[in-house]
Structures are given as structure tokens and as C-alpha cells.
């Protein structure tokens, strides 16, 4: 308990949540190498970012303006667990498959670092998306492009920072990094396929055992 309090006392929230992420935005190569070599990146920042992204996606689904969504419902039903899973699952999928690929192609990044890169790269996207969400409630159909611009710019920024961050932490050259991206996408597809296969097969196994169990209980 004491250690926790000590940790809390030494954490510099301004440094972790404002200064360093902004530093990464302004100088991505220097910033990500600081993250790797000088331990400036924090794991709790990454986890907080994940939570914030889940929260944002829920708000996005709930409050996005009618002009952008094109449909309106007075009592909209939002599937919160689904949104949370759909935010976190792609991140985990990406991190795991990237780690798998880079582990066999001489990448130097640890899984923790990949997670942090993902989180720091989604920092600008979160703010751009929030601006887009607010604007979506203030624009007309002709001005909807302003709002959409912030959403898509956020996505582009995310991909850019993610790419730069991965180059830095894995210590790759540009061409090798491109190959790594392709392989990562391939690995993601394979993982999804295997998971789907596993689910389908385990479903049959479970059904089989449940039928055996039923049969036994009927005979007893």
C-alpha cells in the first residue's frame, strides 16, 4: 500500500498525459525513441487511453449528429459491451500479431512497447475525433465534410504515428517496415481465421458432450 502511495506521489500527470504525448506528436521519431530508451512511456497511460477510447466510441454512437448518421431514434439502443469489445479486440489483435511477426523478423520491440506505441498513436486521433463529434452536431448537410474531415484526419494521423512508432521501437528500415505491415495484416487474418475455426469446432465438441451428458442423465 505504501509503495502504491509513493508511486502515486512521484507520478507527474502533466508530464505523462500532456507534455510527453504532445512531444511525440511534434517530434515523432525523437519521441518514440525516448519512449523506448529513456522509459518516458507509461503503461498506465496506455491502459487509460484504451478506456478513454471505449468511452469515446460509446459517446460517438450515442451523440453523433443526425446529419452524419442519417437516422434518428428517440430511444436509441446502444450495445455498450459490443462497442467495448470492438474497440479493444482490434487493438489486442494488432498488438499480438505485430509482436508475432516482429519476433521472427528481428524486431527489437517488446509487446509492452507495441501496446504503448498503439496508445500514443491514438492520442491525436482521440482529440480529432472529439472535435469531429462536437462539430457533427453543429453542421448542416453541406458542411458535413468539416466533421467528416476530422474523423478521417484522425484516422490518417493514427496510422502515421503508429507506423513511425513501430519503425522506431523495432529499429527497422523503411522497406522492412512496409514488409512488416503487410505481414502483420496477414497474421491478423490468420488469427481471426483460426479463432473462427476454433469457435466452430469447439461449438461442435460442446454440443457433443452436452448430448452425451443428456443421454446419460436420461438413462440414470
Amino acid at each position: 500500500m505504501n509503495i502504491l502511495f509513493q508511486n502515486l506521489r512521484v507520478t507527474d500527470l502533466k508530464e505523462d498525459f500532456i507534455t510527453f504525448p504532445l512531444y511525440i506528436i511534434s517530434r515523432p521519431f525523437k519521441g518514440f525513441s525516448d519512449l523506448k530508451y529513456e522509459n518516458r512511456g507509461k503503461l498506465y497511460f496506455a491502459i487509460t487511453m484504451m478506456v478513454l477510447m471505449c468511452l469515446f466510441n460509446i459517446c460517438d454512437e450515442t451523440y453523433r449528429g443526425f446529419v452524419l448518421t442519417g437516422y434518428y431514434m428517440k430511444n436509441k439502443i446502444i450495445n455498450t459491451p459490443y462497442i467495448i469489445v470492438m474497440t479493444i479486440a482490434p487493438a489486442i489483435l494488432f498488438i499480438v500479431s505485430n509482436w508475432c511477426v516482429t519476433a521472427v523478423t528481428d524486431g527489437n520491440g517488446a509487446m509492452k512497447q507495441i501496446l504503448m506505441v498503439y496508445a500514443y498513436a491514438s492520442y491525436p486521433r482521440l482529440f480529432l475525433n472529439i472535435i469531429g463529434l462536437i462539430l457533427s452536431n453543429l453542421v448542416t448537410a453541406e458542411e458535413a465534410a468539416f466533421s467528416i474531415f476530422f474523423y478521417s484526419f484522425g484516422m490518417v494521423a493514427f496510422l502515421f504515428y503508429l507506423f513511425v512508432g513501430l519503425i522506431v521501437i523495432h529499429e527497422y528500415s523503411f522497406t522492412k517496415a512496409l514488409l512488416m505491415v503487410v505481414l502483420t495484416v496477414g497474421a491478423m487474418c490468420i488469427i481471426v481465421f483460426v479463432l473462427a475455426l476454433f469457435m466452430a469446432l469447439s461449438n461442435e465438441v460442446i454440443t457433443f458432450f452436452s448430448i452425451v451428458f443428456k443421454e446419460l442423465t436420461m438413462r440414470l
Binding site: F66, G70, L138, T140, A141
Partner: peptide, 18 residues
């Protein structure tokens, strides 16, 4: 217009109210 889910007319009205 919101009830009728018509984006174009909604935008027109919204521009005026704004």
C-alpha cells in the same frame, strides 16, 4: 424533419435555427 428522418430538410431548418 428529425421525426421524418430527412437530412436535407433538417439541414435547411437547422441552418435557420442556428
Amino acid at each position: 424533419f428529425l421525426l421524418g428522418q430527412d437530412v436535407d430538410y433538417y439541414s435547411k431548418a437547422f441552418r435557420k435555427t442556428r
